[in-house]
Design a protein around this nucleic acid. Structure first.
Lengths: 227, 227
DNA sequence: TCAAAAGTGTTCCGAATACACCCATGA
DNA sequence: TCATGGGTGTATTCGGAACACTTTTGA
């Protein structure tokens, strides 16, 4: 067989973001086997012949975290010749968003003896392979998606307060927004509706709970660049 | 070897757009061999082990068209299990933009006895594999890029008139813009500068030629949605 | 009564929109 | 002189930005 007919390996890697304790976090796994044994990496694995890329990403994600039904989208495909020392490997990166309630669930013990852990994006270890680059790109995409689409709602529980919503934006952009302008904007976009519930047992004026009306990920320009 | 260790094949497909004769066109090749023999398809081919994905895309593009140094960006990776009847094949789609002068060059005779031809996107044939879907997505991305970045300049010669620039937008969006507002916007973005040249031999007032000042593809929100 | 977050309006400014006429050239 | 596209300005409207105080609850 000629060189050009040999096949590269194909993997999927899933960058999983969530917001916990007022911080943006990403899920990493410690590699149990070489190469990069003991180094943190983005969770992922080989694509099987009988599953689509998205199915592979969903399967790996469930294997690592036990969570299903999260927001998942393809990020980018990384295919530099020497990105994996074991041989030519192309990885299709996905990024996933988990709402704060699901993220609190205990991480499933992983099958391949590696540990999984949430890391704040402000205190990341160096990652295996080209995963630093992949993560950096995922963050860029995340911010972009927050600006122009409604994915924020995939990181919130079904019912939430407008302050929680605003906090999520502030965490992702690492920037404060004006409360009145923020609420005016969100309400004018007609994205949310009041529920009849209010949050109880808070030691301040109890906030109203809202729910999301539209399709997650829809493009709407929630926040303009620089606002 | 177990099922999950068999490897899929990996190809790149390149959707090449250009604007010719006031129409948005895409380059297609007629397949010379089965499957889908005689059907039009997006140009592409297998990724070799010693080249990155982008290198593979550039190589295939040059083999098909003879053009080099075009705007090229990764579009999306398509990996449904049955998208290729020959067996599991994942394709990394790229999209490329060629300026009108380069696009006028004669298409190189292709090596694998297939013909290449420019098709207006308003009169497309049915395509092989899942290429209809890929092309549809590429068009979406193209429009998005026109709205928010400066890629339009990759479809223009080095020196161009503001009317040519506006025409390109009108063709891509299939929509007219107001001449005064368009020029005001472009000039306020500080993207172009007057050259000392004017276009000669036109049977009307000769237009000034402009050149592009910045990096192609930079995000600038040239046209707001709905403008 | 205090602490903590919820909730609420107005003014100002810049950018987007709508809109019509004169200019320079080749045929 | 005519046809063809080049080139230009203003008034209006809309949305973004800045900004501070009162309300409600639990501790």
């Amino acid at each position: 067989m000629e060189k050009e007919y040999q096949k590269p390996s194909v993997t999927v890697d899933i960058i999983v973001f969530s917001i916990q304790n007022q911080e943006l976090k990403v899920l990493l796994v410690k590699r149990g086997i070489p190469p990069f044994q003991g180094t943190w990496a983005i969770p992922g694995g080989f694509v099987r012949l009988n599953e689509s890329l998205e199915e592979a990403a969903k399967r790996e994600l469930e294997e690592e975290t036990g969570v299903k039904e999260v927001y998942l989208e393809q990020l980018y495909t990384f295919g530099d010749v020497n990105r994996d020392p074991r041989g030519r490997t192309i990885t299709v990166a996905y990024f996933a968003l988990i709402d704060s309630e699901k993220a609190k669930q205990k991480l499933k013990a992983t099958t391949d003896a590696s540990e999984a852990e949430w890391f704040s994006i402000s205190a990341l270890p160096h990652l295996a392979f080209d995963h630093d680059k992949i993560l950096k790109y995922a963050l860029k995409r995340l911010r972009w998606k927050f600006e122009y689409t409604t994915i924020v709602f995939s990181m919130l529980p079904k019912k939430f307060t407008l302050t929680q919503l605003q906090k999520n934006y502030e965490i992702v952009f690492n920037k404060k927004f004006d409360k009145r302008n923020f609420r005016k904007k969100i309400l004018s976009l007609n994205l949310v509706e009041k529920t009849r519930e209010i949050q109880k047992d808070v030691s301040h004026r109890p906030p109203k709970l809202y729910s999301f009306k539209k399709r997650i990920g829809e493009i709407v320009e929630i926040l303009q660049p620089g606002s």
